[in-house]
Computed example of a mutant assay.
Amino acid sequence: MASAHDIEGHIFIRFALVGRPVLNGLAGKGQRRRRDPLSATLFARDIVGSLRRQISFSRQGQPADDATVEEFLREAIWQIPTESFVDLVGIDAGRRDKTKREVSKALAAKLMAEFEIVDDPAFYHGHAGTGPLGPKA
């Protein structure tokens, strides 16, 4: 079911929605003027929490809990060069969007290489239609 979900696009959108202090922390442009590892943790948590509304993750056929996926993604985010995050908090919109696309693509590729994507809508309550989304088509 990996093709049914645009992981790269989803991560791209999270860049627009994550707080500016998180991106500043990753760029070393925050209050302390150095990279903040907590920012990588917060961004990973934001991405995984958002993705989990539609999918879940497994590794070698075994379900992977959110903490495992968050830790993997946190490490992947931390490995992104500081210069990329400096571009993301810069004033050049063209450069920001290009960098967001590149980073989103890299993070999605790493995530999909490590984990299998499993279709798992958070609000699905069976075919009876008892959940807020109603019956599954």
Score class of each variant (00 low, 15 high):
Thr99Tyr: 04
Lys98Glu: 14
Ala113Tyr: 10
Arg101Asn: 14
Gly94Thr: 13
Glu116Lys: 08
Thr99Ser: 08
Leu73Trp: 03
Arg74Ala: 11
Lys100Gln: 12
Glu75Asp: 14
Gly94Asp: 14
Glu83Lys: 14
Phe72Leu: 04
Lys110Asp: 09
Val86Asp: 02
Gly90Gln: 08
Ile91Leu: 13
Asp92Ser: 06
Ser84Trp: 07
Arg101Ser: 11
Glu116Phe: 05
Gly90Ala: 05
Glu116Thr: 13
Arg101Gln: 14
Phe85Ala: 01
Val86Cys: 07
Ala106Gln: 13
Lys110His: 10
Leu88His: 03
Phe85Val: 08
Val89Arg: 03
Ala93Asp: 01
Ala108Tyr: 10
Lys100Gly: 03
Ala109Ser: 15
Glu83Thr: 10
Met112Glu: 14
Trp78Lys: 03
Glu71Met: 10
Lys110Trp: 06
Pro81Gly: 02
Glu71Arg: 10
Asp97Gly: 02
Ala106Cys: 08
Val89Ser: 03
Ser104Phe: 04
Leu111Glu: 07
Ile91Ala: 13
Ser104Asn: 02
Arg101His: 13
Ala108Cys: 09
Ile91Met: 13
Arg96Lys: 15
Arg96Tyr: 03
Phe115Arg: 01
Val103Asp: 01
Arg74Ser: 03
Asp119Gln: 15
Glu70Gln: 12
Ile77Ser: 00
Met112Thr: 14
Glu114Asp: 09
Phe85Tyr: 15
Val89Ala: 04
Val103Gln: 00
Asp87Phe: 13
Leu73Gln: 01
Thr99Gln: 04
Phe72Tyr: 14
Ala109Tyr: 12
Ala113Asn: 13
Glu114Pro: 01
Val103Arg: 00
Arg96Val: 09
Ile117Ala: 02
Ser104His: 00
Leu88Lys: 02
Leu111Cys: 05
Ala108Thr: 12
Thr82Gly: 07
Val103Gly: 04
Ser84Gly: 03
Pro81Thr: 09
Lys105Glu: 02
Glu114Ser: 06
Val118His: 03
Ile77Val: 11
Phe72His: 12
Leu73Ile: 12
Arg95Cys: 07
Ala106Tyr: 09
Gly90Lys: 14
Lys100His: 06
Gly90Thr: 06
Ala108Gln: 06
Glu71Thr: 13
Trp78Asn: 08
Lys100Tyr: 08
Ala106Asp: 08
Glu114Thr: 07
Val118Arg: 05
Glu75Asn: 10
Lys105Gly: 00
Ile77Thr: 02
Met112Val: 15
Leu88Glu: 00
Gly90Ser: 08
Arg95Met: 06
Gly94Pro: 01
Phe115Ile: 11
Arg96Ser: 09
Gly90Trp: 12
Arg96Cys: 11
Thr82Ile: 11
Ser104Lys: 00
Gly94Trp: 13
Ala113Val: 03
Arg74Val: 01
Asp119His: 15
Lys110Cys: 07
Val103Ile: 11
Gly90Cys: 10
